[in-house]
Measured scan of single mutants.
Amino acid sequence: TRVETATETAWISLVTALHLVLGLSAVLGLLLLRWQFPAHYRRLRHALW
């Protein structure tokens, strides 16, 4: 049971790290898009909202 718990903890930390990385890359990508294509971003936002 001790090994299982350790594996579970490792998986949880791995998944958390993955989610953090994905979230950060998504935010960075959005910022980059907004910085590179302001007109396109505004049009996209206008279409979405």
Rank of each mutant, 00 (worst) to 15 (best):
W49Q: 10
Y41W: 13
I12D: 06
Y41V: 13
Y41K: 02
A10K: 15
G29S: 09
W49K: 05
F37Y: 14
Q36A: 06
L31S: 07
R45T: 11
G23S: 07
L32Q: 01
T9P: 11
T16R: 04
R42I: 08
A26H: 00
L30I: 14
W35K: 03
S25C: 13
L24T: 04
A17N: 03
I12M: 10
V3C: 02
L32H: 02
E4K: 06
A17W: 04
A26P: 15
E4V: 11
L30N: 01
H40L: 14
H40Y: 14
R45V: 11
A47E: 05
V21A: 14
L30P: 05
S13G: 13
V27W: 06
L28Q: 01
V15I: 14
R43C: 08
L48M: 13
H40A: 15
L22K: 01
L33T: 03
S25I: 09
S25A: 09
R45Q: 05
A26R: 00
A39R: 07
T5G: 02
T16Q: 06
S25V: 09
L31D: 00
L32F: 10
V3S: 00
W49T: 05
L22M: 06
T5N: 01
R34T: 07
A26W: 11
L33H: 02
L32S: 04
S25K: 03
L28R: 00
L30H: 02
G23K: 00
V3P: 00
L33D: 00
P38W: 08
A17P: 03
R2E: 07
T1I: 08
W49D: 03
I12V: 09
L22D: 00
Y41G: 04
Y41E: 04
V21M: 10
A47G: 04
S13D: 05
A6R: 08
A17R: 03
T16F: 12
L44Q: 02
T7E: 12
H40V: 12
S13C: 11
L33Y: 08
T5C: 02
L28N: 02
T1M: 07
L28M: 12
R34L: 15
V27K: 01
A39P: 06
V3E: 00
A17E: 03
T5P: 03
R42N: 13
I12L: 07
A26K: 01
I12E: 10
R42D: 09
A26C: 10
R43G: 05
A39H: 12
L18M: 12
E8C: 05
P38N: 11
W11F: 09
L20I: 11
W11G: 15
W49G: 03
T16N: 06
L14Q: 06
H40K: 13
L32C: 11
G23F: 11
V21N: 01
T9S: 12
W35A: 03
E8N: 08
L18V: 13
A47C: 07
L32T: 08
R42P: 02
T1V: 12
G29A: 12
F37R: 09
L14K: 08
T9N: 14
R2L: 10
L28D: 00
S25D: 00
L44I: 08
L14F: 10
L14V: 13
L48S: 03
S25P: 03
R45F: 06
S13F: 14
L18D: 00
W49F: 05
R45A: 09
W49Y: 02
T5D: 01
W49C: 04
V15D: 06
V21Q: 00
L48A: 03
G23N: 01
E8Y: 09
L14T: 06
P38D: 07
G29V: 15
Q36C: 12
L24G: 13
P38F: 10
L30S: 07
R2C: 05
R2M: 13
G29F: 14
L18C: 11
E4P: 02
G29N: 00
T7V: 12
L33M: 12
R2K: 10
R34V: 14
H46C: 09
R45C: 10
L20H: 00
L20G: 13
W11R: 13
Y41C: 13
V3F: 03
A26Y: 02
W35G: 05
S25Y: 02
E4A: 09
Q36P: 02
L18I: 11
V21P: 03
L24F: 09
T9V: 12
A10N: 15
T9G: 08
V15G: 10
A47R: 06
W49A: 04
L14H: 05
T1A: 10
R43A: 12
H19S: 15
F37E: 00
R2I: 10
W49M: 03
L31H: 04
S13I: 14
H46Q: 14
V21T: 06
R2Y: 15
A17Y: 05
S13P: 14
R42A: 14
S13V: 15
L48P: 02
R42H: 10
R42S: 13
F37A: 13
L30F: 14
V21F: 09
Y41P: 02
A6V: 04
H19N: 15
R2F: 11
L24N: 01
G29D: 00
L32I: 13
H46A: 07
F37H: 03
H40M: 15
W35C: 10
L31K: 00
T16D: 02
P38R: 11
R34C: 15
L48C: 05
W35V: 05
L14S: 07
